[in-house]
Design a protein around this nucleic acid. Structure first.
Lengths: 195, 195
DNA sequence: TGTTTAACATACTAATTAGTATTTAAAAAT
DNA sequence: ATTTTTAAATACTAATTAGTATGTTAAACA
């Protein structure tokens, strides 16, 4: 990686960390700069303004991370019920960077930025749509192999599962991670009913 | 209502509206004052600082509203499955003040303020706890009348339902209100499985 | 009726904000 | 080697922020 590309990545990585914990608007450019060796000149050389940096962060940091954790494990699903549940278990309990107190970076940004900025909304919708598509496709494969009832609507299931995740991430910010296990248990009951 | 009490209520009401749409930190005191006839002197006479106003808003505006819509309809439940579903239908589709784009005021505040301010977290946790207790009690009554299976864990169901609500409110901010109907359908499938 | 206190009103401050203007150094190209 | 362009460093600005200091008026009380 060239030195310039490295500077850019440093900005996005540190911005991601701070915005995850503090929120987008509460994280100032000066705050990002103070915790890196990057100067204001470098920041505005790489990004036209704060929002362009924020969008780059979504597309270049959050999107790849969520694809690896949430989408990839569901491609070529043989056992959708268990694989969806396991994927959820992994993201809630096994990703070390994510802390209950701070919730999910993408969910946080949807909450804060969707109503305020159309570009953010579009970029974030792309994330959740990809995830829902992966779940939907997984359920469809389960229908093909008769492990899922024929009358199940895969898109509806995907919507319900993603909403459940967003919600438990929200709840966990106030109530702590103990609710994750409760959620996983009831998610299993919901998923079993699809068979 | 005395003139002073009226001033206080005006501040809280307008703050609630603005914070609902913009977020807590993004709503400045000057912003609240500019859209009322209240002056800065009056504001700081009634509230020691912005956070005290925010807490008063949660306790005096949000809490009573949520109690009436979410808790009261579940007291003395004869048919928990349908009553919980109907309560959810009401809050998602029938409360005119709430718009999909802006989500739920309480959920928004949990997302934004829980990790940043312990007092906010405690005040907000009181809201969700009350709601969960009402759902739990409703399920318990259903177990007593044998309409709910004996092995169902009422606290778990309450957690799952509240998380689902938070999540669909989050999703609706980016995806619009059409996802509400999908959620309600799948919530019904989940609830039916409790019988 | 006079005095006190509650309820504001106005003008200010110090800190922080996103963003700009200008300069400088390091790479790349010629 | 010299020019040019990329990448960055430094110093600034205008706007906005929460909160304060100091006044003023209206209501309650003695």
């Amino acid at each position: 990686m060239s030195k310039a590309a490295n500077t850019r990545t440093m900005i996005l990585t540190k911005a991601f960390e701070l915005i995850y914990k503090q929120g987008y608007q509460a994280t100032s450019i000066d705050n990002i700069l103070a915790t890196t060796q990057v100067t204001k000149g470098a920041f505005f050389y790489h990004f036209k303004n704060k929002d362009e940096m924020g969008l780059a962060m979504i597309n270049e940091i959050i999107y790849p991370g969520m694809y690896a954790t949430l989408v990839k494990p569901l491609l070529d699903s043989k056992d959708p019920i268990n694989e969806i549940h396991e994927m959820m278990r992994n993201v809630l309990l096994k990703v070390p960077f994510l802390r209950a107190k701070y919730g999910c970076p993408a969910v946080n940004l949807i909450e804060e930025m969707s109503p305020l900025n159309e570009d953010f909304k579009i970029a974030l919708l792309k994330l959740t749509d990809q995830w829902q598509d992966a779940i939907k496709e997984s359920i469809n494969q389960g229908k093909a192999s008769k492990e899922i009832r024929a009358d199940v609507n895969p898109g509806y299931v995907a919507c319900f599962v993603v909403a459940g995740y967003s919600g438990i991430r929200n709840m966990g910010k106030a109530a702590g991670s103990s609710c994750y296990n409760i959620y996983l248990q009831e998610l299993k009951n919901y998923l079993k009913q699809l068979a």
